[in-house]
Nucleic acid binder design. Structure first.
Lengths: 190, 190, 190, 190
DNA sequence: TATGAATGAGCATTCATTCAT
DNA sequence: AATGAATGAATGCTCATTCAT
């Protein structure tokens, strides 16, 4: 069995450490030790720590979104899928012990000049927003305008559920969020 | 005119720096330089950087809450005050250029052992939740049970509005949140 | 049109970088990037960074001397050619913004063991000295002994004019040197 | 007997290493090891490696000039003192095995942004030029204008003698320079 | 001949904290 | 109460060179 590439090992190690311990709490030395890689080898593949984080975030985005998609796959309508996404939050956040969102976490205490990271975070959140909007657009009972507005409202609730459950180390904000979401989707269809 | 105390100057400097640049981005040396205080003098008043942050957060809590109270003072009913709190978010966050919530920001990239800081953040959020609940309890049209549940839902929306506006560097999540809040307060009173 | 060889491209890139930015300031990575050459390919043609520098210096020597020859070609006598060489210094050093002599520059901050480079620098300076002496030997009014001695004196002035104009970022040392040189050539012929 | 201060030990160690091995060849780690000082202690006294070098150069300037003054003290006239300064070069450069001028050496392979160092080098050379000019001004047989011009010519010769003896690892350029200097001072007084 | 991948040793600098006075 | 001096450990990053293919 072949040892995986330097690049892969670095990303794997960094992804784990960045998410578990935070971006600022994770040093290059930790990453290379965990990845069993020479420092200069690592810097041949990544220009900077920020670059590693950018790759980590992009990868995290795809993994997270596809896990979400998979989780709600059994639901039939867009509304049901959206509501189920709160159950996804619950499963996920309980599983990681309420560490919270890797994207939110990395952006809140970041040196000013880390533009790549900020862009990745925005990218992820915009994709998630789009995911919600698309589900609503497929629902015949909802107009395009309503879909746009509703999706932003739900997005806010999702984000709030994540950050507040992280602070409280408890799932209740997720269930409160879910209830709000149901309310939004119900009253809007009147 | 007497120079303010070492302790006060440290807190003032640290408060500014922690909020503007972030906890991890702010070094002890920056703080003592800004505060015009000797390093050892500082450590006579605070055991550690975390201790300074704890005091900063407690003080920030009181300032923030009282500014909120003041902002919504002109409103008569609890519901109106709660809805107006989103306007407060808007005024505040636009003013600070969407730096976000000092409590959310400090908790997301923190060494594991910083318990004092985590406790201050929880304290603040619990106080804010209580503030909302109390306003609802004063409304005769809302039952105690409803007040409890509604307040958690609104709290989630508030938190989401803050973090998402910070990521987007835009006020739209605040207005989406306000809309959701109005919806919640309206449908609940049916 | 064929791409020039690896060797040539490396030398060209290194020559530019060594002279413009300095030997220590120029990294192997810069060279191979500028030369569009793989690192290992480069090391197939040159044993070390020092070896590249040795080739650069030898090539620089020929280019510099032939430009000097060309510059003074219109002058008839050896004395006139030597005096004109200060005008050459001026034209050259103004053109390169007083970067100074590539040979002087490389030798002053060098690891102890870089013998090849030291030898190249000595070679160049000896050739220049010889060039001056030969011009004087062709002058009938000057004895062989005088030519030998005069050439060393003029050489010292030339070197001083270069290094001092580099420090001062100004041409005045070149003109002072020229004046001294004229003086030497005049008084000696008495 | 008290151990000398951190600052003094750092300067002493750095001065030795910078001059003997070169600025680029000398690392911070070497300096602190030689000085027996903790790294952070060193950085409490000096903002950067460049700052250490600036102090080293300033101190070197005073030491070098005062040794020169002392060396030529026995001479009576300004002209004699200036001529004797070439003997000083000889004594000095033979003693240090033709390492050359610490000011010339540091400036020829320096990162672009090291302004402080460049300024110290210019300062030293300007002071030396002034020293020569002042000696000539005290000589009644020389006009102020001549003193100004002669001093620049002699300065060029001095610099050339230093750099060329360094390259050749031999004293002959110093004696050639001395001869030129005598010539300049003699012919000028005609 | 050519090259992508890898490396150990080193770089200058900053960290939060403690000590001696 | 106040402070200048000192520190070990860690920071992110670059160096010239070599290896396997």
């Amino acid at each position: 069995m072949k040892k995986s590439s330097v690049r892969d090992r670095v990303i794997e190690a960094a992804s784990y450490l960045f998410y578990q311990n935070g971006y600022n709490q994770t040093g290059i030395n930790q990453i290379i030790e965990e990845a069993q890689v020479a420092k200069a080898s690592m810097y041949q593949h990544f220009r900077s720590k920020e670059d590693i984080a950018a790759v980590y975030l992009r990868q995290r985005h795809y993994n997270w979104m596809s896990a979400l998609d998979k989780f709600v796959a059994s639901k039939e309508t867009g509304k049901e899928k959206i509501i189920a996404s709160f159950d996804y939050l619950n499963e996920w956040l309980v599983d990681v012990n309420f560490i919270g969102c890797g994207f939110q976490n990395i952006i809140t205490d970041l040196p000013d000049d880390h533009k790549k990271i900020r862009d990745e975070v925005k990218f992820h959140k915009n994709e998630l927003l789009q995911w919600i909007e698309n589900l609503l657009l497929n629902d015949e009972s909802i107009s395009a305008d309503s879909a746009k507005e509703l999706s932003t409202e739900i997005m806010v609730v999702l984000e709030g559920a994540i950050i507040l459950s992280q602070i409280q180390k408890d799932a209740w904000p997720i269930f409160s969020g879910k209830k709000t979401c149901i309310n939004l989707l119900t009253t809007s269809s009147i």
